[in-house]
């Protein structure tokens, strides 16, 4: 029996560090495996990516495109709405992403227990929000969050709490947004983590139990470390999801009230598609790429440095 060898998670240098894993002569098959994907990306994304980058250095004057160098990027620093949208995305990153990730890990762990009855049923139910179409989602949440007679306010009314103006108050609109994103995406992440849990060999649990480890110890010393690649994946995609949040706030609040739920991509959309400032919109897009890349890089580093 062999257990997984220690695998580094860094995108850089994995092979350098671990040359014995797969010998030098086995480099080319890797390229063959990746080739269809790389070819498709080259065909369909090289031009759009290059074009949007070029676009970010231009502006339109009376229907004519003019090269302006880095002017659009300079605008980013002076635009209060960029600051505000980044602040809002920051709140999501600090509050919503950890909340959702913890919920998803706990749910996945519970739903992976062999003693659990109705396991399949619970899994389907918790996955339901992820399959709800956007149209249904928007209608349902607006109905539930209505100030007068909305289901949520009726419920908290039973506890003697006064009605909350969910979508018109800056703080509550943020709370409502966080809750509704969490509702929609927790089950989604849960399933990815559940799939990752399946890959943990039973032997690891057995060995830990023989060492007298309790449930808590098993969870933190076996499950979490083994899940690292998958957790890294879900945290990076959730980070991207938070920075690129668009659907939920577009539908629920339109970015309001007073831009309290404006996110960078919603702002980008307004700038590009409502105000037709495509040059500036592209600059915002590449700013988002830079920010996401930095955060993702940090996440890669953090997971690698753990024992």
């Amino acid at each position: 029996m062999s257990l997984p060898s220690r695998v580094t998670l860094s995108p850089a240098g994995a092979a350098r560090r671990n040359p014995r894993a797969l010998g030098h002569k086995l480099q080319r098959p890797g390229l063959y495996f990746a080739l269809p994907a790389l070819a498709l990306f080259a065909i369909f994304f090289a031009y759009p990516l290059a074009s949007s980058f070029w676009q970010s250095m231009t502006k339109t004057v009376g229907g004519e495109t003019v090269f302006v160098g880095l002017d659009q990027y300079a605008r980013l620093f002076l635009d209060p709405l960029i600051g505000k949208s980044l602040f809002n995305a920051g709140i999501l990153l600090v509050v919503q992403v950890p909340l959702m990730m913890s919920l998803a890990v706990v749910l996945a762990y519970l739903l992976n227990q062999s003693w659990l009855r109705f396991r399949g049923g619970f899994r389907v139910l918790h996955f339901l929000p992820a399959v709800t179409t956007l149209v249904a989602y928007s209608v349902v949440f607006r109905v539930m969050l209505a100030t007068d007679g909305g289901a949520v306010n009726q419920l908290i009314g039973l506890l003697g709490i006064a009605p909350v103006d969910w979508l018109n108050n800056e703080t509550w609109a943020r709370v409502a947004l966080i809750a509704s994103i969490t509702w929609r995406w927790t089950g989604y992440n849960m399933v990815i983590i559940l799939a990752g849990l399946q890959a943990i060999p039973e032997e690891l649990y057995e060995a830990a139990r023989l060492d007298g480890a309790g449930r808590r110890a098993i969870f933190f010393r076996i499950v979490i470390p083994q899940l690292r690649p998958v957790l890294l994946f879900t945290s990076i995609t959730s980070t991207i999801g938070a920075l690129q949040l668009f659907d939920e706030n577009f539908i629920l609040t339109g970015g309001g009230p007073s831009d309290a739920t404006l996110t960078p991509v919603l702002y980008l959309y307004k700038v590009g598609f409502r105000q037709f400032d495509f040059g500036y919109a592209s600059a915002i897009g590449w700013m988002i790429v830079a920010l996401t890349a930095v955060i993702a890089f940090v996440q890669f580093r953090l997971t690698r440095e753990k024992p």
Partner: peptide, 17 residues
């Protein structure tokens, strides 16, 4: 580069695509 295609908002690629 593959990760970058995921990080760039779809909205700025729509017109060139």
């Amino acid at each position: 580069l593959i990760l970058v295609t995921m990080m760039i908002p779809m909205q700025v690629l729509l017109v060139p695509l």
